[in-house]
Design a protein around this nucleic acid. Structure first.
Lengths: 173, 173
DNA sequence: GCACAATTAGTCAAGATTGACTATAATACT
DNA sequence: AGTATTATAGTCAATCTTGACTAATTGTGC
């Protein structure tokens, strides 16, 4: 199963939602574990519906345009649990994307690399700060653990940058 | 620019290669920074060729079926450097995929989660070991730094697992 | 010296993804 | 009251990705 489906089912298991809520949550809070786009979420939800894992109902609120509400089915819950087991057992899937550039540092002058990594560091630290003060968690041990985990990885990145930048600056190429 | 193109250009910048070599290298050594599939690599190379960033020549060796050799053009090198700068400056793209399941730990009984995470730990430790003893680096400071970086992230994951598993086991749910 | 597996090198149809677009409602500002 | 901005809720054509397949060559064991 793809990560997207697992994520969407997991979100719907907590509460039925319509597309906008789902996408907002993902974009605001989960940009570090997925970069699924809005259109992908809608397409995936449709696939899950076709497979019988979610149902779609319509909701009318005042005279706004009606919107679709997605709910997980019991079949979907079973499937979710089954796939969750599989997902947790495999570390193989773990990839740290966005780090391709690091492999090719040698192609730029050292001082410039140091400069670029400083920008990266600033960015990482901003992320850490926002993670620490605006937690989306607080509702479930699991989510907290997951947040802790991502924070751990970020801090590890920060530490690495803090150690690497001075090294780059000192080496006389 | 997508990560795939950056990666392929970076690889070709070191040395012209044919498809098989490229794909083997990626699969064996870079499974932690990308999970680009073989067919994707071929398709991407074709796109890069159409854009003028790589050239394709044919090579005949004995009487084996002729194969395509991909080389980076000078235009490709320029483009590569330009994109590398962009890539390094942005930490925003960093995502730690494969961790979706962690968000939903609460849906499984704690002891089972502990068990699953133990398997994950074993896997992570296997990865660390293989990274440490069969390095694909040793040809460039940049590659070494990148390897060090991925290792750092893995060790961070390992540490987190070592701390979390006993916690899961002790909590009486 | 031959059957079987593994390696090498790709192709392609089917399915997945997304940038750009549409369209209405709420809200803020002057 | 008018209007600019943002929030809400999606859709779709064009592009990208990949599982499954083809096909030749090189071992390997017997």
């Amino acid at each position: 199963m793809d990560d997207q489906s697992l994520l969407l089912l997991g979100i719907l298991k907590v509460q039925s939602q319509h597309g906008y809520q789902i996408n907002e949550f993902i974009e605001k809070n989960l940009s570090r574990v997925t970069n699924m786009k809005k259109a992908t979420a809608y397409a995936t939800l449709e696939r899950l519906a076709k497979a019988g894992y979610v149902t779609v109902t319509f909701e009318q609120e005042g005279n706004r345009p009606q919107r679709k509400v997605y709910s997980i089915t019991s079949m979907g819950e079973e499937y979710f649990i089954e796939q969750l087991r599989e997902n947790l057992a495999l570390a193989e899937q773990m990839t740290f994307t966005g780090d391709i550039g690091l492999m090719f540092l040698d192609n730029l002058p050292r001082p410039e690399v140091a400069q670029l990594l400083k920008m990266r560091l600033a960015d990482v630290e901003k992320q850490i700060a926002s993670f620490e003060k605006a937690p989306f968690h607080a509702n479930g041990h699991g989510v907290n653990l997951a947040v802790a985990h991502v924070l751990t990885l970020f801090k590890s990145e920060q530490k690495w940058l803090l150690a690497t930048i001075p090294e780059l600056e000192s080496v006389t190429q």
